[in-house]
Design a protein around this nucleic acid. Sequence first.
DNA 1: GCGGGTGGTCGAAGCGCTTCGACAATGGTG
DNA 2: CACCATTGTCGAAGCGCTTCGACCACCCGC
Lengths: 342, 342
Amino acid sequence: MTAKRPDLVTIADVAQHAGVAVSTVSYVLSAKRAISAATRERVLASIATLGFQPNAGARALASRRANVIALVLPLRTGMHLPILMQLMTAVVTGARGHDHDVLIMTADEGPDGLRRVADSSMVDGVVVMDVELSDPRVPVLRELRRPSVLIGFPADPSGLTCVDLDFHRAGARCVEELVALGHRGVALLGAPAVVYTRGTGFAHRTRTGFLAAVEKAEVSGVAWPCEEDQVSVATTLRDLLRRHPNTTGIVVHNEAAVDHVMRLLPSLGRRVPRDMSVIAICPDQVAERTRPALSSVSIPADEIGKQAVALLMAKLAGPPPPAATLLTPVLTVRSSTDRRQR
Amino acid sequence: MTAKRPDLVTIADVAQHAGVAVSTVSYVLSAKRAISAATRERVLASIATLGFQPNAGARALASRRANVIALVLPLRTGMHLPILMQLMTAVVTGARGHDHDVLIMTADEGPDGLRRVADSSMVDGVVVMDVELSDPRVPVLRELRRPSVLIGFPADPSGLTCVDLDFHRAGARCVEELVALGHRGVALLGAPAVVYTRGTGFAHRTRTGFLAAVEKAEVSGVAWPCEEDQVSVATTLRDLLRRHPNTTGIVVHNEAAVDHVMRLLPSLGRRVPRDMSVIAICPDQVAERTRPALSSVSIPADEIGKQAVALLMAKLAGPPPPAATLLTPVLTVRSSTDRRQR
DNA sequence: GCGGGTGGTCGAAGCGCTTCGACAATGGTG
DNA sequence: CACCATTGTCGAAGCGCTTCGACCACCCGC
């Protein structure tokens, strides 16, 4: 039996019903002043029976806090969709945990959109997904009168708060693992070429991490881009094995290509893991569904989203939190890696 | 050279700068009263130089319109992600076209979440994606004090505004096409079994449409659910061809399985389209990237999202629009269908 | 040339909430 | 026992905007 639903229940109705002042109701809700237990109970009861729900606009106006954050979607959809969704869900859930709601903006609203929602006090802060190395929204973010957190790193992250998986370490970690297993010829199959040319940070960072580790370990290693369709993957893989026949370990940083790679390798005479060890950088669910299951560095979208929100809330609350949060990559060994056979 | 950025520009600042009353500025912005061209120019100029952006909270409070709509994500992620994203983008873009922003809510906020955002006047209306046949959110929607539009149909759509592709017609249309090409044994490969048991409307409707058309055309036809992984698809397909060897036309309503089906059919001795015609119900981009390209009924996510917003805006503006909007399926013939060979 | 539109502008009253200062009523302290 | 902090509550002043009624010029028609 739901309460009657009058057209609009205001805080004044609650106050009257409970026999207290409007301000008292407000303080019960915000706990910014001490309220006696008896009064609190009474007010809470009135709120419940009347089905009072504070008016968001009025609250925002008076408190100068909208309790809403903006989430800006990626510029282009090169991003792996499942990761994107996970990230989104994590941000929304995280925000709700801090009593905030989430406004979404498509990237094509661009810098002006950011200004609009920020300057209209519609949102208290902004989370930008999938920032690119030279992203037109970044300068705007800097001069915005509201705090922001970036998921991903632009070329110059100074003055900004960024979160991401430490892809540099991730690339290196994969090499180290392969080297530890005795592999002396390794390769990185990365994102499609266009992703590098348009300057998406995580692709670059994985590559430099990979190459740095290759150099340090004094093994031979190459980093190739890789398209996403089966035919291109086949071509790329064939080329790779022809030009670098000593390759016995491959790192794949490309969710869409990973299935194809696993399927094609045996048909190119390389059984996994016996003849070829494969490590992916991808979400766990992708790694777990291939045969054999992939050893992988997971992309912890949930954690990234949660962190992004936490950082934004910290900025809203007070002194600036650390500028850069790099999550340490975790490598899970499954069945696609093995000691090098001699 | 951007204007100086004082801490907050209000409508009063604009009024003073332009030498008019606050209300005049408001009327320039809303055009709800006639304003002389001269004054308008002056006010607009002041707005531009001061970089005025109306405060969303104040506006919402005074006008009782937040200019925000809520978009509720699907309950479970059985939905094809690309479609979901397209839908989301279309809704956001559509909303912006009507000068509204979009708040996202994950489904696990549930009915209470809906009440919260609606009763707090945080949003003016609600769009719910991927409604299920018996959806706990539906009764809440009915008694909500704000208009809503559903994407998809619940079991009982009375009193609600719903939009969707006419999946019943889509299923029938595919059969008709195959029959017209001379096929007398057809099959529907649908969504995973769990999708039917949990009562997702579009899967059911496609099936009933398919079966009705089969009966009407007096051909033989079966409708099977179909899992999404390659192994299951192979099993299902093999079973199907064994138990119904006279099948020469297949309708696939399962984005994830469609690639596998196309790849597996030749290895089961059925070349497409020579031995087997295939029609998919899927987004165009999926249909276009297979070899051979798939004849398909497209799922017009953009159009659905646009319609949903348009309907919501209509409800906000005045008299209720049509309760049900069923988009007519369009079949595009590509290379996966052919006359039945005798 | 006078009454009645009508186009253009203003002032003020809210919208529903938060928050600040004020003020009883306590209770502990010297 | 007078004094001062505390604790709990209230009233009122905004927050920045929309909107309503009022008002003043006009211009038109008769």
